[in-house]
Amino acid sequence: MNLDITEQSLPVFEALASKVRMKIIHLLAEQPRNVKELAQSLELTSAIMTMHVKKLEKAGIIQSELVSGKGGLQKKCYLVTEKMEVLFPSKERELKKFHETEVSVGHYTDFSIEPTCGIATTDRIIGEFDDPRYFLYPDRMSAKILWFGKGYVEYKLPNFLLGNQDPSELEISLELSSEAPFTNSNWPSDIHFYLNNVVLGKWTSPGDFGDSRGKFTPDWWPSEVNQYGLLKRLRITSDGTYMDGLKISDVSLDDVSIREKQWTFRIAVLEESPNVGGVTLFGTGFGNYNQDIRFRLYYNDSELTKEETEKLS
């Protein structure tokens, strides 16, 4: 989870400003618990515990769902945040030069998927659920959400880096979650990322979220299916690849042939992974973040040698 110093992040800071809520996070890190179990562990009433749970839910730190128990339906809580990174205002970063390309969710150039699966624009479902053939339908270019149980989707995009520009970091940001039948906040999925056929690493999505509607999800979208994902930021630097600030591999810019004129980016759920829980990709008009798959290549200008200048001319 990425935070910044704006009012949008206030619910998270407020949720963490409580010893009780910090204890709740520690308890849920051990295992999911229902409200009654949390209340008993902290010697509080269920009513007070419900208030604390709602604060943590609003902040996106935990998710909950109604499950059947011995005494009927119970509200079970799950920790869904692995780490947080607070981004402070930085003049240096704002002044950094970069090339930006945003690729629409439906603009994939290759795929190989298995159900459950589906694809939709902001206006309608394309074709039918669980039929991979509709991933070839011409209207898929307008798709802003897609999901599949296992397999991959692949995107190609241009690289506008010039000869006198030294790449320092590639940032890829996208909103995604697992893909469960209907929704399930506790549905882990190992999602792998590739750039130019090099494995960058994996991130394990905690679940497929449907406890509340996405901020940008269209009104016609069914309430019983995936509503929103988590905004994740992949950063490839000179010393490795990071997910939301946490290093996930030693793959560097040099390893992925960053100066290639065209990049290939793949998102995959592998059959041999421990957690095969699918993936849902959210684009503009769906989920909580109104963006598609965004690529930013940061660079520094450098002086060209005479030979390099002649090659470019």
Rank of each mutant, 00 (worst) to 15 (best):
R124H: 14
R33V: 03
Y194M: 06
T204W: 05
K55P: 01
G106W: 08
S273M: 06
F265S: 07
A39Y: 08
V103D: 01
L304Y: 01
V198N: 07
Y298V: 07
K150V: 07
K83G: 09
E82H: 00
L297N: 08
G60K: 05
G285R: 04
F182Y: 12
A268G: 02
E271A: 14
A59P: 08
S46G: 07
R259W: 11
F265T: 05
R259I: 09
S223N: 03
H107L: 13
E43M: 05
S178A: 14
S173R: 10
I119T: 12
R296T: 00
R124C: 13
E14R: 05
E308M: 08
V103H: 02
V12D: 09
I248D: 09
W221C: 06
M51G: 15
Q40T: 12
T183S: 05
S18L: 06
M141I: 15
E179T: 08
A15P: 10
T101C: 11
E65N: 00
F135I: 11
W187I: 01
S185C: 09
G287I: 00
S302R: 12
V105W: 09
E100D: 06
T109S: 13
N300I: 05
E102T: 12
N186R: 01
V199S: 13
S18I: 06
L10C: 05
A180Q: 12
Q227Y: 06
E94A: 11
T280N: 02
D110C: 05
L312C: 09
E94L: 15
L270N: 13
R93L: 15
R33H: 07
L170K: 05
I25M: 13
S252P: 04
K261I: 08
L157V: 00
L234W: 12
N290K: 13
L170N: 04
E271P: 00
E272F: 02
P158C: 07
F295A: 07
A59W: 10
Q8C: 01
S189V: 04
Q227E: 10
N186Q: 03
V103M: 02
D255S: 14
F129L: 12
S173V: 11
S168C: 09
E94S: 12
W187H: 12
E179Y: 13
G285F: 07
R140W: 00
W263C: 03
D292H: 15
V105Y: 07
V198T: 13
R233N: 15
I258K: 06
V199T: 10
G207Q: 07
I191H: 03
R33I: 00
P138Y: 00
Y298Q: 11
E303V: 14
D255L: 08
L44V: 00
A268H: 00
D239G: 03
F193S: 03
D130S: 10
P181F: 01
I145C: 14
E175R: 04
F111C: 07
K97D: 09
L246Y: 11
A180F: 07
N159D: 08
T116D: 11
E175Y: 01
I25K: 06
T50F: 02
Q165M: 11
G72F: 08
N275K: 10
N186G: 03
N288S: 11
L42D: 03
D292I: 03
S168F: 02
G210S: 07
I258C: 08
A17G: 10
M1R: 06
E260I: 02
D131P: 01
E43R: 11
F182S: 10
I248A: 04
K215R: 04
